[in-house]
């Protein structure tokens, strides 16, 4: 009431920042603008495509991670699930080079489903806290990669061309994996916003006890999100092996934190109940752009990790300040 009116532009910016997705979008635009001023080639189609290729896998897994985080859980085992599924699929493909690539995709998803189901089982029926359960399977699944492969790798020349093209082929204008990521985003968006099961995920994350009292099968919802996380990892694993044309014992090592980072930067609340698909996609996009920009403006690749960490910190701090201010506005 007595508060002085903000200048128009500032008022507009504030309104944008308050909407989480718009805020990240704005940040991305500013970043892209700055980088393009420095290196105009940044906006070239080739480079943009490169960014999309780089974030497709991240986006797929981050979408699943988001559903897990909305239920107030976390899945740290994603990197090991990817590593294990990638190794197994690559071996099978190597043994059967004639196998249709699509079958490999299916196989990967089924393997991932089994791994995700195991996570789901111990979290729901075993009542092991998600952080602990997936911390455990993180090292179990990674150990199985070594056990499976005996420490050996699968190299590019051992894989058939059809398999390598699975991710990078462009029968439909854009590379397959970019289309797959887009498809995944659409499916998850529809699922979260327009199906009861999707709404149940929010309900369980928002108030678990009340969800149970409302007859929402809490255990089944939890099981489902970990299962889906496994399926997404299986899909990501096949794409990973195909894109990088190899399967190694350390495939995707440390990837779990990137997926959490994409979600958190995209506005998913670590305490559950909040998160949107556009937000996560923008979060993944931002991570990808930063990585690409650092390379393109010739900053040593050794800076990348530090920049990524800094970005997460900035995103979290800015979000916190914005939330605090919004809270104050609601009160007054």
């Amino acid at each position: 009431m007595t508060e002085p009116r903000r200048p128009k532009l500032a008022g507009f910016l504030w309104a944008v920042v308050r909407l989480r997705e718009a805020g990240i979008g704005l940040f991305i635009i500013i970043l892209v603008g700055l980088v393009t001023l420095r290196v105009p080639a940044f906006l070239s189609p080739d480079n943009l495509l490169d960014i999309l290729l780089n974030i497709s896998i991240l986006a797929i897994v981050a979408l699943a991670q988001t559903m897990v985080i909305i239920t107030h859980g976390i899945d740290l085992s994603v990197s090991s699930m990817i590593g294990l599924a990638a190794m197994m699929v690559a071996f099978v493909v190597k043994q059967n080079p004639e196998m249709p690539a699509l079958l490999a995709l299916l196989l990967g998803m089924m393997l991932g489903a089994a791994l995700g189901a195991f996570n789901g089982l111990i979290i729901t029926y075993g009542k092991v806290p998600p952080l602990i359960a997936t911390l455990g399977t993180l090292s179990i699944y990674r150990g199985l990669v070594f056990f499976y492969s005996g420490g050996t790798w699968i190299n590019s020349f051992e894989l058939p061309k059809s398999f390598k093209l699975l991710s990078k082929g462009t029968p439909l204008l854009l590379p397959n994996m970019v289309l797959l990521a887009l498809l995944a985003a659409l499916i998850v968006y529809y699922f979260l916003n327009h199906t009861r099961a999707g709404r149940d995920i929010y309900a369980v994350g928002s108030n678990p006890e009340a969800a149970q009292m409302s007859g929402i099968p809490k255990q089944r919802v939890l099981f489902l999100v970990y299962l889906l996380s496994g399926v997404a990892c299986g899909l990501a694993a096949v794409l990973w092996a195909s894109r990088f044309e190899s399967a190694q014992t350390n495939t995707a090592l440390g990837f779990e934190l990137q997926t959490v980072a994409a979600s958190v930067v995209g506005g998913v609340s670590i305490s559950g109940g909040v998160g949107t698909v556009p937000g996560v996609i923008l979060g993944a996009l931002l991570l990808g752009i930063i990585q690409n920009a650092l390379t393109i403006v010739r900053i040593s690749p050794f800076w990348q990790l530090a920049a990524q960490g800094l970005l997460i910190l900035i995103a979290v701090i800015v979000d916190h300040l914005v939330q605090q201010r919004a809270q104050r506005e609601v009160q007054s």
Binding site: A261, F302, A307, Q308, G309, L310
Partner: peptide
């Protein structure tokens, strides 16, 4: 999680 990446990056 943020400083995990940042410190290793440094």
């Amino acid at each position: 999680l943020g400083t995990y990446a940042f410190y290793r990056g440094v």
